[in-house]
Design a protein around this nucleic acid. Structure first.
Lengths: 203, 203
DNA sequence: ACGGTAGGGGCACCGGGTGCCACGGGCAAC
DNA sequence: GTTGCCCGTGGCACCCGGTGCCCCTACCGT
């Protein structure tokens, strides 16, 4: 439900709930990577995490959700970044900057991110599920664009910008995964650049 | 598997296979629209179509697939249209034209199309599943762009164009469904126009 | 009359997901 | 200390989507 912070009152509280969650997510990630998403059963993940099938569903919600970590927090961060962006910077630039900063992971976190994204972009079931997660991102971006343009979040341009930028971000992730590009931020800038220039040379 | 045409040798051949398929798809569409995708069980659809659960899976493949009709044929048509497009017309223009022509339905087919798209864009499970179907479209478009640009279909620009144009098409469908736009073709042209111009006013 | 084949149905089974209840440990109030 | 509560957890039963396997039946050509 809520994003728990370990920094409450200085002492890391060792929340049992978050502890089992971490164990489950780590076990799921390893097993999925090793054997493939479909081949691994919940029971196997639960066993590897030292818990039960029932607890798995209670703590991570579902098989596909085990891969996403705290994605709600990620979306919240993106929303905050967009809220804080100045009125003078162009809309597309602001969206790009928010995407770049929201995905500015510490070097130590990159391996896990690679593992997550490889699964999400490769495994069909996860690829399908991702649409539901990305819909949250789209809503946030569409809302921002709508505010900046004085339009309804459900009208064409805000939604188009949201889905197109998200498509660009996804493509950037793919390029980053295949190693064709130095960094994730660079891939994002390249993709957004192409988008903002209307694909020069293709018109 | 294959797209059967009733126009072989003048007499409508009454293919039993295609007949039950049509009954199942119609029953599924009606029940999903009336009660919601999750609420309807396969057994109910099979009963309404006058057949069995087992036959349902054999003929339409799965619950989500029952909504899509002959989408493979749709993708094939799109590929053919792109193949036939001239070398002189700009890439983005060719993709737009192919999308418009592939989605140029007869007026009588529009109600069913509305019903299908409303379900696909509204029901979460179908929204998720759609990603797998759209991936086929993306592969076709990315392949075309790659051919025109002399790049690999897996490199950034072809994939970006494919996902971005498909995002634009989806947004156009949403706008068409909400009635904010006169026709589907018009919505597609508007969305592609915004995309090709790099969202003027937002940079 | 014969065998082949294809569409269909029945059945058992697997795995994801949920509701319900029961257990056990920590923790406050008495 | 004892009581009572809450919360994380586990076990169980159940539903439903999906698949493999076998059998039935109708239609086909010979």
């Amino acid at each position: 439900m809520s994003v728990l912070r370990e920094s409450d009152r200085g002492v890391p509280r060792e929340d049992p709930r978050e502890d089992t969650r971490a164990r489950i997510e780590q076990a799921a990630l390893e097993l999925f990577t090793a054997a493939g998403f479909e081949q691994v059963t919940i029971e196997e993940i639960a066993a590897a995490a030292g818990t039960s099938r029932r607890t798995f569903f209670r703590t991570v919600g579902g098989k596909a959700d085990a891969v996403w970590g705290d994605f709600d927090g990620h979306v919240d961060r993106l929303a905050t970044l967009l809220d804080r962006s100045g009125e003078d910077v162009p809309v597309l630039t602001a969206v790009l900057a928010a995407y770049v900063e929201a995905n500015d992971y510490a070097p130590g976190d990159l391996p896990v991110l690679r593992q997550r994204m490889r699964l999400i972009l490769t495994e069909p079931a996860l690829q399908a599920h991702s649409q539901l997660r990305y819909a949250d991102v789209d809503r946030v971006v569409a809302g921002y664009v709508a505010r900046r343009c004085g339009q309804s979040p459900t009208s064409l341009v805000p939604r188009l910008v949201a889905t197109a930028t998200r498509a660009a971000a996804t493509t950037a992730f793919e390029a980053w995964l295949s190693g064709d590009v130095p960094s994730l931020a660079e891939a994002l800038r390249t993709a957004f650049g192409q988008l903002a220039e209307g694909f020069p040379g293709l018109r």
